[in-house]
Design a protein around this nucleic acid. Sequence first.
DNA 1: TTCGTCATGTAATGGGTTACATGATTAC
DNA 2: GTAATCATGTAACCCATTACATGACGAA
Lengths: 197, 197
Amino acid sequence: MSRRSGILEFAVLGLLRESPMHGYELRKRLNTSLGVFRAFSYGTLYPCLKSLVANGWLVEEQGSAPDDAKAASLAGRRAKIVYRLTAEGKEHFEELLAHTGPDAWEDEHFAARFAFFGQTSRDVRMRVLEGRRSRLEERLEKMRASLARSRERERLDSYTLELQRHGMESVEREVRWLNELIESERAGRDRRTGPDQ
Amino acid sequence: MSRRSGILEFAVLGLLRESPMHGYELRKRLNTSLGVFRAFSYGTLYPCLKSLVANGWLVEEQGSAPDDAKAASLAGRRAKIVYRLTAEGKEHFEELLAHTGPDAWEDEHFAARFAFFGQTSRDVRMRVLEGRRSRLEERLEKMRASLARSRERERLDSYTLELQRHGMESVEREVRWLNELIESERAGRDRRTGPDQ
DNA sequence: TTCGTCATGTAATGGGTTACATGATTAC
DNA sequence: GTAATCATGTAACCCATTACATGACGAA
């Protein structure tokens, strides 16, 4: 029941929704295709998979080597364990997709949520995008305040200042990006730009 | 001897080098002035301070309330504990400043290192900046490769693609930033842009 | 036959947060 | 006098990594 990591659980369920996979492959997709998430290690991934199985959200299946037909008959070979999403798992994932709590737009979660926007309803997408934006604007506010404060007091050498400036610009840039996305959602983005399954 | 966190230790020593401080104030500076580092909690900071004291790099001093003169005589009051860098601590910090191992340009460390560039010799600054840049270029390489790979195979919906695109742009932007900084260092940047103590 | 990569797992450890406990000082 | 903020600390927990252990499979 415990021993799960929120974002990893979410990403795993999301990836497996598209198609069944074994752990090793799952990890690669977590790093590369959806390279956005940080690279989880096997020491994290495998236990997580076990716990998802224990929850009834996944089932393990004996997938065999690359060529299924030939090897299917061999009894004792250590086959790959292919994980498949159950109906309950699908349901659970959909619930997670629908959540729009504040943590949905925190740094780590947001990328994962965004990566599965293709499966997410438009109103939820909007809430998450807008939540993230206001989160970043708060942050900007604080940065500006602290910057003003330190300017008064004449602290901060040029490097510290430069670092702060660059940090603020990054955040401002993400806000602009979000603005475009929100605009595009509002304009009715059912005409997708990509193939989308 | 153990129970220290690299970046936190580094930042604490660096901040205390400028002037003695107590824990609470230290934490604020960690978050706001040098807001770049993630916000460490007291549960992390205080034990870290203790261990730095145990190493002989800091000493605790009984600082009293804002006005030192008046309160100095009161015996039993729970005074603020002001931490001051020892000679050994200063030496240790200088060693840390001189390190240019690969981890110096990893995401978390880099910001901390950069924040104390004001205390860092130019050649070390150059190595760190260039190290970071090539680190990011590696990352870009991988991102491009994986993007190309997934394009072939026709995977990835528009959102995943957009996320990836934005991620790459962020990295490219940081590379440009580093280029400017490196250029500026090379051009002989002893004429600082700011007051710098 | 050996090397690289695929593939699955566990135990020890690390590095950090949260929640809690305590109390002083300042502003209203 | 009471609320907010300053200030210090600890214990329990969480999440994830590292190092380790195991072994199959394909290619040189």
